[in-house]
Design a protein around this nucleic acid. Structure first.
Lengths: 184, 184
DNA sequence: GTCTGCATGTAACTGGTTACATGATTAT
DNA sequence: ATAATCATGTAACCAGTTACATGCAGAC
């Protein structure tokens, strides 16, 4: 249910209408998270009911009334709690991106721990895939047909995991870290 | 609806029961495509109705009857047609991986064209993200707080696109190509 | 007179997840 | 005893997509 969180992040940066959120998602946020206006309206309605956001209705002349949404205290608390809570092992980069983008200064420490954990999971997966390559396709240059195609898909996995690890290493290096690894 | 296609690929490599497919998805295929047994059974039922697969029921003693599924001619044709048809612009790596893994020799030429197209889309996106970095965060080392976090997410996008381009370049180099770019 | 932008939604459907259900065999 | 493996499924729910619907303002 990460769309809720992505909306909370966007609304805490700036309040806005469902329509405006749709446009934001078409632009910057939408590079890593897409959402249609129908989906956003539905989700905002649900979030209003559960108290994460509120809106002020504004009449306009010439244009339809609009509902300007903003995050409630409950919403801010829920977002912070979500960011501080470890995701499951299959947590994907989009979800982690929402957390990175939405973390308040007080969330950063917990977030760094979580990033480190996910980074290590991806490093393990990379090693596993490299092991498969070594075991099943020790000489890739001679492959043809189905075996070649299977190898190439596996290569994609290796490169994808490696890329994620590199990214998260960069993130960990850049983030202010009050928990430097001392002597472990 | 790419689970159908992933199942067709797996079943054309070897026939099997829903249970066996579930295990295959937990292992090799599951690295890039996960599916629960419930989902697989439901999908197999749907695919049987539409004629893409058939099954032979086999009684066993001590164990419940099993349905051994295999791909029909219709299924083989549908798979090949899907592989030859360009996806939409948001085609993701998992879907492309299914196509690469499932392509018969006669599909390879069309597939290479498609891979090239998707590769170029990702290269464009990489350039776009790099442009954003240049414009909005020209000096990343001095960033702190929200701006830093936004930059780091953007960096993730750059690295992800770059990784995909690298992978697809590798694929294009490795695949037998009867269409070398001559002088364009 | 047509298209784009602003602004809201409903309805039907598809795909996927979670929880529940059954039942024998084999290994610890 | 207990858990894992083989083997099948249903039911309820949630998230997301596609299609449909309305209506004014301003630009071309």
């Amino acid at each position: 249910m990460a769309l809720e969180h992505a909306l909370l992040v966007s609304l805490s940066e700036r309040s806005g209408t469902g329509y405006q959120l749709t446009r934001r998602f078409d632009r910057s946020i939408g590079h890593w998270w897409r959402a249609s206006h129908q989906q956003i309206y539905k989700t905002l309605a649900r979030m209003t009911e559960s108290g994460l956001v509120t809106y002020v209705e504004q009449a306009q002349d010439g244009k339809p009334d609009k509902k300007v949404y903003s995050v409630t205290d409950t919403g801010r608390k829920a977002l912070s709690e979500w960011i501080r809570t470890p995701g499951n092992d299959a947590t994907d980069r989009r979800e982690l991106a929402v957390k990175i983008r939405g973390a308040a200064p007080s969330d950063i420490d917990d977030l760094a721990v979580e990033i480190r954990r996910i980074r290590d999971l991806h490093a393990e997966r990379e090693a596993m895939f490299l092991g498969f390559v070594d075991r099943d396709y020790p000489e890739p240059t001679v492959l043809t047909g189905t075996a070649l195609q299977q190898y190439l898909v596996l290569r994609g996995e290796v490169l994808s995991e490696r890329g994620t690890v590199e990214w998260l290493d960069e993130v960990l290096r850049a983030l202010p870290s009050p928990h430097p690894r001392s002597a472990d």
